[in-house]
Nucleic acid binder design. Structure first.
Lengths: 200, 200
DNA sequence: GTAATAAGTCTTCATCCGAGGACTTTTGTG
DNA sequence: CACAAAAGTCCTCGGATGAAGACTTATTAC
């Protein structure tokens, strides 16, 4: 059997590379993930990654495009009673992040956005234009953009604190517990009154 | 003038290295910061960094120790009316993070904790034992640890979303605006009732 | 004054990284 | 069957990185 040349059959190596990359990005973030590691995980020569995607940034872009589903997230906010949108969004989001011991690919985007300017740009654009902007437009509330941004901050913070920093109280808590606690906060950001006074 | 050997006078090169490292970690995070870059910023040979701190991890530890002031943070929560602790904590925290265009060294810790396991461990230990644990102990509320963890998640999220991802609505908002909006959320996490029902 | 120590630098080494060119094999199309 | 394109691999290059050892100079303690 030849070690070089095209493999027999109709292999879907491209998508295997994408999912291997998603795992690496989730575990280590953009900078700490190397194309060589991804290629090794996918059982492929690094040069093939380059042939398919061009470079590391484009590879990350492909992973992001495969992971991000704006319609789904929007549906989580839109479909159902408006008063429970916060809890619904949080449940959907935590579902995407997956189990604490084995996080999903979405964590890779968040992790990467913190250190890589390129990844941050992708996430910013996606959040601002595809998700937050749409949510804000539908809110019909004052300070709609800021509200959406605050929602994003709480969501991102949960991802970082629970999955990356792994704060014990947050890793120990169940999805339901977190939804019970933080759901009302998202709801407040989305539709609550803006008051300076104490809000229990 | 000799290019090698000890410099004349009583130089405080060590602290210059620490502050240069703090700037680099803040701008790029742990992985993307190299000892060589830090040394260059401090106008020093990389080997000197090694002599002083031993390695990159210890250098980061020194920066963390210089940046973190648990007593100050605790005072922000403790000193003053209990009902405004959330807003007070948030103001203190945003002050530490600094201007959006020129973030302070605390951002380096957060940024680094996302990708580096070592940095995450340091931050986890500091937050859990030095800060959140103490806050939780003083809360005299149910689910004290979880409350403290949720507070941390919102704080970390603001840092990441505003300073790293640079979401437009959050970079545009002033410290006061953010304190007005998110302060009540921290207050709710700290002392609010835990209710599943909607909380506007 | 002299010896020890602290503060610095220079050079080297093994390793990993991303990029890219050259080559090989399979598939699909006429 | 012939041939182009797609799918793969191999090898190498230049650059950056962390680690480490050998050497030099100023300060300090005696």
């Amino acid at each position: 059997m030849p070690r070089t040349g095209r493999r027999p059959g109709r292999p879907d190596t491209r998508s295997e590379i994408v999912s291997a990359a998603a795992r690496r990005f989730a575990r280590a973030g953009y900078d700490a993930t190397s194309v060589r590691q991804v290629a090794a995980d996918a059982g492929v020569d690094p040069a093939l990654v380059r042939r398919f995607f061009g470079g590391k940034e484009e590879l990350f872009g492909a992973v992001a495009a495969a992971v991000i589903r704006p319609e789904e997230a929007l549906a989580a906010v839109t479909d159902g009673p408006a008063g429970e949108a916060g809890t619904r969004l949080l449940r959907y989001y935590l579902g995407l992040l997956g189990d604490v011991r084995q996080p999903g690919p979405l964590l890779g985007l968040v992790r990467s956005a913190v250190t890589s300017e390129h990844a941050a740009g992708l996430l910013r654009q996606f959040l601002a234009e595809r998700l937050l902007g749409v949510i804000a437009a539908r809110l019909r509330a004052d300070h709609a953009e800021l509200r959406a941004g605050l929602v994003a901050s709480q969501l991102v913070g949960l991802a970082v604190a629970r999955y990356a920093v792994r704060l014990p109280p947050l890793t120990a808590a169940s999805t339901e517990e977190l939804a019970d606690w933080a759901g009302p906060v998202l709801q407040y950001y989305l539709t609550g009154d803006h008051l300076t006074q104490e809000r229990p």
